[in-house]
């Protein structure tokens, strides 16, 4: 996208003007962004956010194709919606779309391989174990369905429901 102010350079900054409780957004180049941010001030507040460098370069090879057909079983959000808005629907979305998450990380953090390095967090080891079991079962369920072992699939599904109940998840699909 070209700069909405000068139209000469590629837009790589987002300017947000705050007027009362309204926000006006404009995509601009670095030159214009800085010029506007520091120029003789108008009576308008403004917020300048530059995109991470990687957002400008697109795509390289040697990575699994983006799965566009996924929908989160817990909240019902499709990956297509995530691509459109860059808003995930729930914690489970990060597991459901796990193959695609490195692309989002590259877009917003600069490199696809980056992972969490902060202090580990555990609220309750029992709950954590249940969630991990559920993640494993979801994979097993997919496999069972693919192999047309429907009886086995039904059993797995029951166990998943039971776990979700134990976890107390509220879900828009249930």
């Amino acid at each position: 996208m070209m700069c909405e102010v000068c139209g000469l350079r590629e837009a790589d900054h987002l300017l947000v003007e705050v007027v009362g409780v309204e926000k006006h957004k404009k995509h601009v180049c670095q030159n214009c962004a800085f010029r506007l941010a520091v120029a003789v001030p108008e009576e308008k507040p403004l917020e300048m956010v530059s995109y991470p460098a990687s957002e400008k370069r697109e795509e390289q090879s040697g990575r699994p194709p983006e799965r566009m057909d996924l929908t989160c079983p817990r909240c019902g959000r499709s990956y297509i919606d995530v691509k459109k808005t860059f808003l995930l629907g729930c914690a489970e979305c990060y597991y459901t779309f796990v193959e695609n998450i490195p692309r989002l990380i590259e877009k917003f953090h600069g490199a696809a391989h980056l992972r969490y390095r902060g202090a580990p967090y555990t609220h309750d080891p029992k709950r954590r174990a249940l969630m991990e079991e559920r993640t494993r079962l979801l994979a097993a369920l997919e496999e069972a369905v693919a192999e047309e072992q429907f009886e086995k699939a039904a059993k797995i599904r029951d166990r998943i429901r039971q776990i979700e109940k134990e976890l107390g998840w509220t879900s828009s699909t249930s």
């Binding site: 808003l87 914690a91 990060y94 989002l104 953090h109 609220h123």
Partner: peptide, 25 residues
């Protein structure tokens, strides 16, 4: 707060946020 209520978190990605730009810490 995090000991009273369970946060959305994964070992790989850290604290799970609505927008991926906040993901991690």
């Amino acid at each position: 707060m995090g000991s009273k209520v369970e946060y959305a978190y994964s070992g790989d990605f850290g604290f799970l946020t609505t927008h991926p730009s906040n993901l991690g810490l």
